[in-house]
Amino acid sequence: MENCYLLSWKEGKDPLASAFAPEDTKPSYELISDLNGLNELPFELDLIKLDVDINGLIKSNDLSNLKEIWRDYQPNSLAWPLMSERMKSIVEDNLTGDEGIDWISALVNSSQEKRKYYIPRFNTELDVLNFEKTMFIDGTDHILKPVFDSSKLGSYTMFIKPSSFQITPGIYIKETLRKIILKEKLTGISFEMTKVV
């Protein structure tokens, strides 16, 4: 049985660059239906430095003292999986084709340059859960803690839990893809092991 992991943004104590949508952008869950039939975001994102002090969160346009500006898995105000061209290429090369994914491109700006990033969109609801072991909120289909069924994961390298939006930060990958990501030294990613039975 292969281990599976939830992809997350790597956090640390140092300030970081996060890609921000324009101020008047709808909440991310409302944006998803607006993107039906589109393969690029209708707006651009701007990198903002985020830091924390005793008064809370500090935002700044000055990225000059950051160690790392462009991450392969870029934090962003939409809380969407925003992948560099390199990460998209590596992920795409390792998909089976059964995942039902297409990609939405997004332009991200710093004061010095503009780069293209990609958001995976899952167009098929995948049957991946072990329903007996998964924890749900009583009387609903809302998942508290997913437990995946190894016999259902065979044809997927990357997947989401059922009932998630097509675009979600809750992306899971198999160990094989995790090893490739680590070998290729993709930046900005941490992995949280999830339960598979």
Rank of each mutant, 00 (worst) to 15 (best):
S110Y: 02
K116L: 11
D93E: 14
F148A: 04
D102R: 04
S164G: 09
L95C: 08
P169G: 03
R71A: 13
D138R: 05
E44Y: 03
F165P: 02
I32H: 00
L153H: 00
Q166Y: 02
N55K: 14
N65K: 03
W80C: 07
L95W: 06
L129K: 00
S111G: 10
G56H: 07
I32N: 00
H142N: 11
N130V: 01
F159R: 01
E68H: 07
S164L: 10
R115H: 05
G170Q: 15
P42F: 04
Y172G: 07
I48W: 01
P42C: 04
L144M: 06
D62T: 10
I137P: 00
S28F: 11
I58D: 00
V52C: 06
G139H: 02
I137A: 05
I137C: 01
P81Q: 11
E92L: 01
E44D: 12
L38E: 14
D34L: 12
F136E: 03
T96Y: 13
K67Y: 03
L95E: 07
H142W: 06
L41V: 11
S164Y: 04
M87K: 13
L47P: 00
G97A: 06
F43D: 11
K145V: 11
D127P: 05
K152Y: 04
E99D: 03
P27R: 13
F165G: 13
D72F: 08
L63T: 01
D62S: 07
E68M: 12
N76G: 06
A79Y: 13
E92T: 08
Y156R: 01
Y172K: 06
L126Q: 10
K114I: 15
A79T: 13
I54S: 13
L57N: 03
E99Y: 01
N65L: 00
M83S: 11
F131I: 14
K26V: 15
K161Y: 02
N109F: 09
V52K: 10
P169D: 09
D102W: 01
E125R: 04
M83H: 14
D98F: 14
V128M: 10
S105T: 10
T140Y: 01
K88M: 09
A79F: 12
Y73V: 07
G154V: 08
F43C: 05
E92H: 08
N36D: 13
K59F: 14
N94W: 08
G154R: 12
F148H: 02
E99C: 04
S89E: 15
G139P: 03
L35K: 04
S150K: 15
I90F: 07
K26I: 15
K145D: 02
K152C: 06
T96W: 09
P27F: 11
G100E: 02
